[in-house]
Design a protein around this nucleic acid. Structure first.
Lengths: 170, 170
DNA sequence: GAATATAGTGAGTGCCCACTCATATTTCAA
DNA sequence: TTGAAATATGAGTGGGCACTCACTATATTC
């Protein structure tokens, strides 16, 4: 057998709790806080994720996977929106897309692959000029995600800022 | 009199040291590291800047002031470049432009004022459409500064990414 | 060149937090 | 049902780091 029933349950609870706690208090939130939110002792958290960084990596990968899954049903424009949404909600993608020193290379690569397809479609639809490369798009996604974190961002400012970027890609 | 000669000297040394240390090791660098780099004891650092945050605020303000001074001799395009430069060099502007919880509101306001003028000039020169507002520009500056921090950014990627943003403003 | 205020020193203090481990509890196979 | 393997528990440990303070050193004033 693989994993005891309670272990499965707790692992899930910890991941959920970690998402909420880190989203609310940022990556400096305590492992203790996560444990409490999950209704579990600290030791349990560390059994499942030997390191706080492991926990961070886990939820960042979840986040990236969620975004990668979205590319199927998105245009470049709606995807930018989705990334910003996710960034605001989880506060983690930003670090993920960015340079965090954490090892999420593979998940990032997966996302990049999907964005490449999205970009190709956009080019075909005349929404992106042919000379645009994926790395620019990834860079702009990171940038948008980060900037969107500002407390001062209204829905309006967000819309206008993304509009500038999208117009720039055309 | 205001400040003893050695105090003036040390204060300057501490600021310089702090810039270097934080630029190299990020904002989590130790106050002890700063002291060493400045050739001074920790106590001295704390005499001048009662809090580590005070020190961070001080060098961020320097950075922002440096940028504000640049707006006179810049176009919108060269200013974007300058901001990215400063971001890469100091690693601090990013936090400054962003939402750090630190109190730099006034310095940010000063910068915003200058950028407003820059934007007006750009509009007059036909380099920015009249509907663009300053807050978008500030947001895009923040975004660019952050994205530029990625280790993976080559000069080429940077040029292409900024080009997209600038084209979007037109 | 004292006298006094001002500044510098750095070992020490307390706090926070990631991580451990001896012990208690739960699951599950037989 | 039972017992051994897997998990959970949470008080404790260690280390890092911001910040202090009793004391020493230096600058300035007259």
């Amino acid at each position: 057998m693989a994993l005891r029933a309670d272990a499965v349950r707790n692992r899930a609870a910890i991941l959920t709790a970690a998402s909420e706690v880190f989203a609310t208090h940022g990556p400096n939130a305590t492992t203790e806080q996560v444990a409490q939110q999950a209704g579990v002792a600290v030791g349990t958290v560390f059994r499942h994720f030997p390191t706080k960084d492991d926990l961070l990596v886990a939820i960042m990968k979840e986040s990236l996977a969620r975004l990668a899954a979205l590319t199927n049903e998105s245009t470049l424009a709606t995807f930018f929106d989705a990334v910003v949404d996710e960034a605001v909600r989880t506060r983690m993608v930003v670090i993920a897309l960015g340079d965090s020193g954490l090892d999420i290379g593979d998940a990032l690569q997966g996302l990049t692959d999907n964005v490449t397809q999205l970009l190709d479609q956009a080019k075909a639809a005349g929404e992106a000029r042919p000379t645009v490369q994926v790395d620019e798009v990834m860079a702009l996604l990171t940038a948008a995600a980060y900037a969107a974190q500002q407390a001062s961002w209204t829905a309006d400012l967000r819309q206008r800022t993304l509009a500038v970027i999208l117009r720039g890609l055309e």
